[in-house]
Computed example of a mutant assay.
Amino acid sequence: MADVAALAGVSHQTVSRVLNAHPSVREATRDKVLAAIEELGYRRNSAARALVTSRSATLGVVTTGSALFGPTSTLIAVEEAARDQGYFVSVATLRSYDTASINQVLEHFMAQGVDGIVVIAPHDAVAAAVESFRSPVPVVLVAALEPSSADASGPSTLSVAVDQRAGARLATELLLDLGHADVVHVAGPQDWFDARERLAGWREALDAHGVRPARPRECSWSAGDGYAAGRDLAEAVAAGEGPTAVFAGNDQLALGVLRAVWERGLRAPEDVSVVGFDDVAGAAYFVPPLTTVRQPFAEVGAHAVAMVLGSLAGDTVATRRIAPELVVRSSTAPPRPTAR
């Protein structure tokens, strides 16, 4: 920094202000300092900075190691948001959800001296273990905790998530507003927060329309399970006894349902309308293009990092719920008129 200051003809303090984006630096001075930094190839010494500030400028991120779209997209979003704030990210992957494994991961971060931790916790067991861990640094869960849990959360269990329940209501209400008398739900695994919240939103939408919900079909998140559920539904539709609309717990389940409908010689949306959840890459190219609920993962990542940094700064930080977006494509339409 002393070399940069000498080349730019400014003080060491001015270089520090430029590096920390201080607003009081004049634009011409900032340009001189940045030009000197580029010419000299200056890079911050993170180890030295940590000694001075007692901060490592590193956030720990716990992820379940799942290849599923939601957790993977969330991890990418958190890393990008941390980097934008000048923070490094140390990632630990969980292969099992028992308390001992999760505590080991969190202690690993404590040994690294991370400034805070973001836990991508879509599963009950992960959130429960994290909540029981006495962390000396801020911890933010990326988890769609049920309202009762979120309200009871203290500073150590702050959470941020997409409002899964609201997304499910949007999907179900679309189908009901199109004129479908009922909507069947092919649900994800019920030990995941997201799946339970989506199921709750589906029920709320049906209740609001005076429709008594049938028993949901509980599955994993896989297209194979969606296909198995879809075969049963398609047989019922072909017999004139099945639903005309399906809300699938994620886009992979929806993909399986669409395949089963096609194999049975039925058409979507003419015979069955289908809505998914996530808006995975390629959802617009399903046959037919899939109506689905889009999750703003970049916003989730930015809020998670901002909550950790806000806690470090002593700010009052509240649990956040972020609104999803319904993306309407051609897998949904009004039901076919019945013959008279």
Rank of each mutant, 00 (worst) to 15 (best):
L34Y: 01
A67H: 01
T72S: 15
A313I: 09
A2R: 13
S11G: 06
D31R: 15
A228L: 15
S311C: 13
V261T: 00
E27N: 05
G230K: 04
G167F: 12
V126P: 00
F109V: 06
R336N: 06
P296I: 03
W221D: 02
S311G: 15
S73V: 07
R231Q: 15
R55F: 09
L266H: 03
I322Q: 09
S153D: 00
V287G: 00
S90W: 03
A82Q: 01
D278V: 02
T319D: 04
V237T: 14
V287H: 00
V293E: 08
R165K: 03
L106H: 01
Q104P: 02
V119R: 02
A144R: 01
L174Q: 08
A248H: 00
A234L: 05
S96H: 12
R134Y: 10
L19M: 14
E79D: 11
A229G: 07
G9F: 10
V142A: 03
R49H: 05
V25Q: 01
T244I: 06
L253M: 02
G240I: 06
F193K: 07
T58C: 06
R26D: 03
P296V: 05
L158F: 04
Q164V: 08
A333P: 02
S24A: 15
P189Q: 14
E39S: 11
F286V: 01
A5L: 10
D182R: 10
P334H: 09
L145T: 01
V25A: 06
V61H: 03
G113P: 00
R196S: 07
A47L: 15
E263T: 13
I120S: 03
S220R: 10
L233E: 02
A5F: 03
D98N: 09
L174K: 08
V272A: 10
R294Q: 12
S220D: 13
G230I: 12
R83K: 14
Q85Y: 10
L59A: 06
R196V: 04
L175E: 04
T292S: 14
G276A: 12
V18K: 04
V130M: 01
D278S: 00
Y285H: 15
D315I: 07
G242Q: 04
A248K: 00
W262H: 15
R196K: 10
A8Q: 04
V183L: 11
L141E: 05
P71N: 14
A318C: 14
G226A: 13
A129T: 11
E235Q: 09
G167Y: 07
L175W: 01
G310A: 09
G242F: 06
V308D: 10
A57D: 12
Q85L: 13
P122I: 11
V91M: 10
Q13M: 11
R340L: 12
